[in-house]
Computed example of a mutant assay.
Amino acid sequence: MKAQIILASASPRRRELLDQIGIAYEVWPVDINESPKVNEAPVDYVRRIAAEKSEVCHRLSAHRGLPVLGADTAVILNGRIMGKPKDKVDALAMLHRLSGQTHQVMSAVSLRGRTHGEALSVTEVTFREISEQEMLAYWATTEPADKAGCYAIQGLGSVFVQAIEGSFSGVVGLPLFETAELLLQQGIQILHE
C-alpha cells in the first residue's frame, strides 16, 4: 500500500497503532532536543515537542509531498513530567511514586500537510498499590526500561492499572480518535469503501 503519511517517530507502538487503523506510512524519525524548558508546563511541553517533530520532519521530507505526523506522550504526576527511567533505582522510585496514585498521560499530535493541525489527549490513569516484590519483578522483565513513566499499559504494566478515564491509545502513545480527526482534515479517511 502506498504511504499516506510520514511518521516522524521511531516508536514501534505508534507504528502498531497506525497499522491498527489501516494508515500506510513511511518512518522518518527526527532527532530533536526533547528536554523541557525551565518552568515549562507539561501540556506546553508535549505540544511543543510534537510540533517540533512534525516541523523538522516536514522540512526534511518536503520532496515527498506527504503529510507529516509528529507525536509526543508524557506521564505527569503532581504536575511533574516523569520521563524514562535512567536505571533500576530511578525505575523503582518512579513505580513507588505511581503506586496507589492517579496520574495523567498527555499525548499531543501534530499533523503538517496542506494545513497544520494539532490535538491533545489527556487521560487519567489510576494505579493500585504495587508491592516492592512486584516492582522488582516488573523491572526484571525489561519492559519498563524505555517507557515514559516506567510502564507499558499495553503490556505487563496493565496489571497495575486499576482505572483509566480517557484514551487508551493515547496512553500507549498515539490517541487514535484525535489522530483520525486530523487525518480527515488532510483528506485521509480511515473508514471508506
Rank of each mutant, 00 (worst) to 15 (best):
R13N: 05
E181K: 14
C150V: 15
S54N: 03
Y151I: 09
A24H: 10
R97S: 15
G113W: 03
D31M: 15
P36Q: 06
F168D: 00
Q185P: 04
G83S: 15
E40Y: 11
D90H: 15
T126D: 05
A24P: 02
T115C: 12
E118L: 08
E178F: 13
Q154H: 08
G166R: 04
S9L: 13
H116Y: 06
A10D: 11
N39P: 03
G83H: 13
A24M: 07
M94A: 03
E40W: 13
G166I: 12
E178D: 09
L7T: 04
S11I: 13
L136M: 11
W28Q: 07
Y25S: 03
G170M: 11
G22H: 04
A108K: 06
A140C: 03
V56W: 01
I5Y: 05
V159G: 01
T126Y: 02
R59I: 13
L69C: 09
L183T: 03
F177M: 09
I23R: 02
M82A: 06
L66Q: 03
Q101A: 15
R128M: 05
L184M: 07
G170I: 06
S99D: 04
V43W: 00
L77M: 08
A3N: 10
K53H: 07
D72W: 08
S121F: 02
A140I: 07
N39Y: 07
S110L: 10
L98A: 07
R15A: 14
V161M: 08
A8D: 08
A91D: 01
D31Y: 13
K147T: 04
S54D: 09
I49H: 01
V172W: 00
R128S: 10
V161Y: 02
R128L: 06
Y138T: 02
A74F: 10
H96T: 14
D44L: 12
H63Q: 13
C150Q: 01
E193G: 07
K84H: 06
A137K: 03
E129M: 13
A148W: 09
M1C: 04
T123F: 03
S9R: 03
R47S: 10
F127V: 06
V109L: 15
Q162K: 11
Q101P: 02
I130A: 00
A93I: 12
A3S: 15
R13A: 12
S61T: 15
L95R: 00
C150P: 07
E134Y: 10
K88E: 14
D19K: 04
K147H: 05
L98N: 02
D72Q: 06
I21M: 10
P42Q: 05
T142L: 12
Q4H: 00
L184A: 12
S54Y: 06
Y25V: 05
G170C: 06
L156S: 01
E34F: 12
A145T: 12
Q186M: 14
G157L: 05
G157V: 07
I164M: 15
T179V: 14
D90R: 07
G65Y: 14
A148V: 13
A91Q: 00
R80W: 02
D31L: 14
T123Q: 03
K53V: 08
M135Q: 07
V75C: 14
Y25A: 01
L156M: 15
M94W: 09
A50S: 06
I76F: 09
R80K: 12
